[in-house]
């Protein structure tokens, strides 16, 4: 009996040691993550919390809902939110229309050629946003290159209003946002096993049916991810609408800036930020459900 108990006891001791080792490993892992967690705390959680708190502080420094009331009472706030979402949807839509064929084209190229083309897609990332936006102004304005050339070529007689309006804003934003759509989309297209397309062809699908019934559905997760990135980035855009919108296309970010200038407290601007954040979260949440459904449909892919 005592002989049997000895190895048992030894085994029990090992169990404790092993458990301790496991815990130590977990702690070490947590230690690795802690700088990032701390950073997230400092640069994300605290400022957002502060923003939230400030939005409930009125002009006289006491707790108040006036910043939110102003937003719901005034038509201009509603229009600004409407414009913000309209531009974001429009930009995302056009990015999809341009970006999908582009990504498709890239995905069909051999690796080397595709990389070269990708670099040209990424090139805009290396120039400053402001420079690119002003470049569009030079191209699009009344006496800009596009109007002058088009008139010289006889395409139209009077300068067309391309800048200082919604058109110019969307053109500029599409240009800036396109890589954000193309990159994830290209990645997901590249990941589609060619055998799926072969299988579809073998089962009788011509190139068009093949695309609509197999390739497109399989590329949807990438398209969705890209479109979501573009949409969310659009919501907070400042420079492009400010420069290309002609002062008439006012997005939330611009209103935030002008509120900081105009009102004596930060609450008015914070409230706008909170509402925009909330709206974005609602959209992300809704979208995430779709993405998840899509993941399920996408299976192990």
């Amino acid at each position: 009996m005592s002989e049997a108990a000895l190895p048992m006891a030894a085994a029990a001791t090992h169990a404790d040691d092993l458990r301790r080792d496991a815990r130590r490993e977990q702690l070490a892992l947590f230690g690795l993550a802690s700088p990032a967690l701390l950073l997230v705390m400092v640069v994300l959680v605290i400022p957002v919390g502060w923003l939230f708190y400030l939005s409930f502080i009125g002009a006289d420094g006491s707790f108040s809902l006036e910043n939110y009331e102003r937003m719901f009472d005034s038509k201009s706030y509603r229009r600004i939110f409407w414009t913000t979402f309209e531009i974001s949807f429009l930009t995302t839509g056009i990015c999809i229309l341009i970006g999908y064929p582009l990504a498709y084209f890239l995905a069909q190229l051999p690796r080397r050629a595709a990389n070269l083309c990708l670099i040209t897609v990424l090139l805009p990332f290396w120039t400053s946003l402001l420079v690119r936006t002003y470049a569009w102004l030079v191209l699009l304005q009344r006496k800009g290159l596009i109007n002058e050339w088009a008139i010289d070529l006889g395409l139209w007689d009077e300068p067309v209003k391309l800048a200082h309006n919604m058109t110019g804003t969307v053109i500029g934003m599409v240009h800036i946002m396109l890589p954000f759509l193309v990159l994830p989309l290209y990645g997901s297209m590249k990941a589609i096993d060619r055998d799926y397309l072969r299988a579809a062809a073998n089962l009788g699908a011509g190139p068009v049916r093949n695309f609509w019934t197999v390739f497109l559905p399989l590329s949807l997760p990438g398209l969705f991810a890209g479109a979501l990135i573009v949409f969310v980035l659009c919501l907070g855009f400042y420079v492009t609408p400010a420069v290309l919108g002609g002062g008439k296309v006012i997005m939330v970010s611009m209103k935030i800036a002008s509120n900081i200038e105009l009102f004596v407290n930060w609450g008015a601007a914070s409230a706008l930020g909170v509402v925009l954040l909330a709206a974005t979260l609602v959209i992300l949440f809704t979208a995430a459900r779709f993405v998840k459904l899509d993941r399920l449909a996408g299976g192990g892919h």
Binding site: D195, R198, L203, G206, L218, G299
Partner: peptide, 20 residues
């Protein structure tokens, strides 16, 4: 003849079942 007009059944090595 292109593949989709050959009217052949085929089983692929990795099955190539459409995940969607």
């Amino acid at each position: 003849l292109p593949p989709h007009k050959r009217d052949l059944g085929m089983v692929f090595q990795n099955y190539a079942l459409f995940p969607h």
